[in-house]
Simulated scan of single mutants.
Amino acid sequence: MEYQFVRDPIFGFRAKFTDEQALFGRWLTEEINTDRQQLTALLGLIEQVKAVQVNELKLLGKEVSLTLSDAEALLEANILHQGDEDISMYQDDALALDEDGLLAVCGYEDFVALIHAWCEFIRFSITP
């Protein structure tokens, strides 16, 4: 997984990823960023999965949600689960949901390394 962290004087901390992993950048930048509560919850999920207390855990976000298992980390845009939304009324406008970039996955170890690198970059202490 290739990424770059940037401290932008206007927009603050940002994460940039390759196109196929771009959702990780959006998630880190918009959902997690420097939110201590979110980071603490995320680190707690990592520890629970590492301790094999559960098979799969989910962290629901405003726009993007994480599903974490001991094998992988899966990010999904919440709009993918809006099945009750009837978009047929927009068919005359030729509108469709572009699912490209709304799903990303990486291995568990890569994800843990990413989160630790992010915490170090934003100077969030991992230890209590």
Rank of each mutant, 00 (worst) to 15 (best):
Q48F: 02
I87Y: 10
P9I: 08
L39V: 09
H81W: 08
R7D: 00
D93H: 07
F111W: 01
I126W: 04
Q21P: 00
G61Y: 05
E56Q: 11
Q48L: 12
D100L: 13
L95N: 02
F124A: 05
A113T: 10
F111G: 01
L75K: 00
G83K: 14
D8C: 12
K62L: 06
K16V: 13
D100G: 01
E56A: 08
I87R: 12
V54T: 05
L114G: 10
V6L: 14
E20R: 12
G25H: 05
A41T: 06
L114P: 11
I115C: 09
F124P: 08
E2F: 08
V112E: 03
F111A: 01
L23D: 07
D86W: 00
F121C: 08
T40H: 10
V64M: 05
A94Y: 12
H81N: 12
E85C: 06
G101L: 07
D93Q: 12
E63P: 03
A94I: 07
L60F: 10
L66G: 09
Q53E: 14
Q53K: 11
F5D: 03
N33A: 09
K62M: 01
E120W: 01
L97T: 02
A15R: 02
F11L: 15
A15E: 03
D100T: 15
T18Y: 03
L74K: 12
L102K: 15
K50L: 04
L68I: 04
D98K: 07
Q38F: 14
Y90K: 00
V54Q: 03
L75F: 02
E2K: 13
I32P: 03
T40W: 02
L80T: 02
F121Y: 15
F5P: 01
N33G: 03
L59R: 04
C119A: 15
D35R: 15
F5C: 04
E47T: 02
P128V: 06
F124Y: 15
E85Q: 10
L23W: 09
V52I: 09
V64Q: 06
R14K: 15
I115R: 02
V54N: 02
G101N: 08
A113R: 10
C106Q: 11
F121E: 05
H81F: 15
D100Q: 14
F124I: 01
L114H: 10
S65I: 09
T34S: 11
V49M: 06
Y3N: 01
L80Y: 02
W27F: 14
L45P: 08
L68H: 04
A104L: 00
L59N: 09
R36I: 13
G61M: 04
R7H: 14
G25E: 08
F124N: 08
L23G: 09
I122P: 12
A94F: 11
D8F: 04
I46M: 03
D70Q: 10
G12L: 05
R26W: 03
G61V: 09
L39M: 13
T127P: 01
L114D: 09
V64A: 09
S88K: 05
I32C: 01
E120L: 12
L68T: 01
L80A: 04
K16T: 07
R36Y: 11
F121P: 01
L80C: 00
W118G: 12
Q21N: 15
L102S: 06
Q21M: 01
S88Q: 10
L59E: 05
Q4L: 13
G107F: 10
F5G: 02
N33V: 00
E109Q: 14
K16E: 13
D35N: 15
L28N: 07
D93I: 03
F17L: 05
E31M: 11
V52H: 14
Y90C: 08
G107T: 13
L95A: 03
